[in-house]
Design a protein around this nucleic acid. Structure first.
Lengths: 169, 169
DNA sequence: ATGGAAATATCGATGCCTAAAGTATCAAAA
DNA sequence: TTTTGATACTTTAGGCATCGATATTTCCAT
């Protein structure tokens, strides 16, 4: 039985048509780039390290905070809800990459830490991850990357302002 | 009991630290912009039209193909797997926005079409959606938007080449 | 002190997404 | 005609994400 063909790179830009406003085309192109890159990274994390992006992200937070983090702090830093962190942490604990320790100060809370194996494992993955990103952006020259970086800052504050205006009740 | 605080805009850029390679910071900023915009759009689709982005996207495909599309065609155009399209279509059928008709030519296949109500509903949503995007990019001037559009084309082909090199067996 | 509000984490329900396996149909070769 | 392989779709299992509810603990105003 034939394996399902996979959406390799999620080129959302194909949604654009000539009738679309220029801003819409710009947005769809932005989305297409992000999807392509993120999907490539997900797929290599999976094929080369057998890990998912959310788990990698959680470990990245812990690597930067060797003293460990409470579930709620992880949740804030990763910008995801608490219930989500519970599940991802469960998985990493089961894999022996992370431990939950009781907080000595607050019996409601846990302190999550990388295990030695988790730390070792993460460092290898992070190195590869950075190389992939360098490859993905490697077709842009230094000046282009700088320009893009600046323009995205403008976009970010533009979008911030717009979302601000439409206040989340 | 306090309601769970929500990850409003997923600012992945906060993951960046000074030790990160410039390319990594650029990537995280790209991701941050996309997440912020996409999350805003999702949230407004939900609050103003009570619909999800995937359902909106599926309807957008059908709007552009008034003769209807087979499930497999939807899957290809939306760049998602077939099983996914099955689920989303089920929902839209239940809401009366879409119909599955038997293909007269091929008894394996369905033709999915917007219902009149689906079409009416989609047009209203699409108009609002476009306005939101215009607002979100409104803080950039014409020249900046043009530059961004061009730079993203460079990035897209750069990323394409990189993913090409690392051939998905 | 103590009673209520806030904080910490978990759980259950729901939705989107993939990969893999299963069913039905089609088309063409043996 | 029968078989064979490809195609169209569904189903199942697993992961990630949200939301809302709940249990426990802590904090604070009285």
């Amino acid at each position: 039985m034939p394996k399902e063909s996979v959406p390799a790179a999620a080129d959302t830009e194909t949604r654009a048509t000539s009738e679309h406003a220029p801003d819409l085309r710009l947005w769809l192109r932005t989305l297409a780039c992000t999807n392509m890159i993120e999907s490539h990274i997900r797929s290599r994390l999976r094929s080369e390290f057998d890990i998912t992006l959310p788990r990698f992200d959680l470990m990245a937070q812990l690597e930067r905070s060797p003293q460990g983090l409470k579930m709620g702090e992880l949740s804030k830093r990763m910008m995801v809800t608490g219930g989500n962190v519970t599940g991802i942490t469960d998985q990493l604990v089961a894999e022996g990459l992370v431990v939950r320790e009781d907080s000595p100060k607050d019996r409601r809370a846990y302190i999550v830490k990388l295990t030695p194996e988790g730390r070792r494992s993460f460092r290898k993955m992070a190195e590869a991850h950075e190389e992939w990103v360098v490859e993905l952006f490697g077709g842009m020259d230094e000046k282009q990357r700088g320009q893009l970086y600046e323009l995205l800052a403008v976009l970010k504050s533009s979008a911030s302002r717009a979302t601000e205006k439409h206040r989340p009740r």
